[in-house]
Simulated assay, not measured.
Amino acid sequence: MTSPPALPNTAPRIPPAEHPIDADLVRGLLADQQPALADRPVRVASEGWDNAMFRLGEDLAVRLPRRRLGAALLAVEQRWLPRVAPGLPVATPSPVFAGAPGRGYPWPWSVVRWLPGASAERAPLNSDQGARWGAFLKALHRPAPAEAPFNPYRSIPLTERAKLSGPTLARLAAARPDLVDATLLRLWGEALAAEADLAPTWIHGDLHARNVITNDGVLAGVIDWGDMCRGDPAMDLDSLWMVLPDAAARAAALAAYGDVSKATLARARGWAIAIGAVVAESAAEADPMFAAAGERALIAVREEG
């Protein structure tokens, strides 16, 4: 069998931390600002593009931005997630303590609840979790106040996002016609033509499988709320293809969500195409597992379109 052509080599590397972060810094910040937690054991949990995470005992974690950009996202999470989380039917890492700069560390940081489980990227949701996912999205998509954050990549209409995603999709169509074919390009065109028929609501803004926590395939939590903002609910509905495992789960999610117009569903497909294409291309070399998730989303949209 002939292997498909390689994706363009545009993969970004994880940026270097703009300030050193280690367990000693975490202990020092806790000793100064939250001494009741300072005696808990601290150990490294993970490090991503924007944040470093340390376990704090068994039920808590400390999140510290690695970069100025991450600090802005964490500040959004600190301010707004505690207001939104109580109305959601899933667990979130809503901050239990909002830390301030200290010990030479220049940015805010958080103590959050540790959500046990695995990411849906590694331990996918069971098909029977579609209805729970739809109920979560419905609960989240409620009116956001005028002062809610504006995110320049997520709050914008899909037609604006197309200025970034359109060229990516064109490159993929040239390099991977097995992935981006005439059907997918037709659906993309229909999405761009679809009327924006909903008022903006709260949205998570980054609902891919890596930000969904599962326990034995059961939805256990949603993490990484730094991109939460006021925007088109269709942007989050892209998760039907980014997160859910099959068509049956997607149908159950839509039934639980209710009242999704053809235009909104078209825009949701468009957002799944836009995000799936960016993930498939940008992560191709640096993060093959993430890139594969983007490819799966594109294939799912195409097959159901």
Rank of each mutant, 00 (worst) to 15 (best):
M53H: 13
G217W: 12
V260H: 00
E18K: 07
W109T: 02
G276E: 03
E18L: 02
R43T: 14
P149R: 05
G258K: 02
H208S: 05
R176D: 09
L137S: 02
R161M: 08
A293I: 03
A220V: 08
W114S: 03
L184C: 01
A100K: 10
W80M: 00
A280W: 08
T201I: 10
F150Q: 14
F97G: 11
L172V: 09
A173C: 06
H208F: 14
T159H: 09
G166P: 07
A173E: 15
A199T: 11
A268V: 05
I203G: 03
P124I: 11
T264E: 04
W114G: 00
A52I: 10
P15E: 06
L265Q: 09
R176S: 02
N51F: 04
M235L: 15
A17E: 14
G48R: 08
L254F: 01
G276L: 00
W80N: 06
A263N: 09
A148N: 08
A120F: 03
K138Y: 11
D197Q: 05
R43H: 08
E285D: 15
W202P: 14
E47Y: 00
A11S: 10
G87Y: 13
W49M: 13
A284V: 03
I275W: 13
A72Y: 09
A300Y: 06
G221R: 09
P116T: 01
V96Q: 05
A175E: 11
W225T: 01
P93N: 02
Y257H: 02
T159P: 09
L219I: 14
A144T: 06
G70Y: 10
R13C: 12
M1N: 12
A248E: 05
L179S: 07
R27D: 05
T2E: 13
E18T: 10
R83D: 10
A72V: 12
L74E: 01
I223D: 07
Q129I: 08
I14W: 15
V76E: 14
A75M: 00
D24N: 13
K262Q: 12
R83C: 02
G48N: 03
M53C: 09
E47T: 11
W114D: 15
R154K: 15
G258A: 03
L115N: 04
M242W: 03
S155A: 03
A292G: 09
P149M: 06
K163S: 13
V218A: 15
V301C: 11
R132L: 07
D181F: 07
P152Y: 04
T2R: 14
D32I: 05
N151C: 02
R66N: 13
P233C: 02
S282H: 10
A272L: 03
E190G: 14
L7V: 05
A274M: 06
P124F: 04
A292Q: 11
P86L: 11
R83E: 15
T183I: 01
E77C: 13
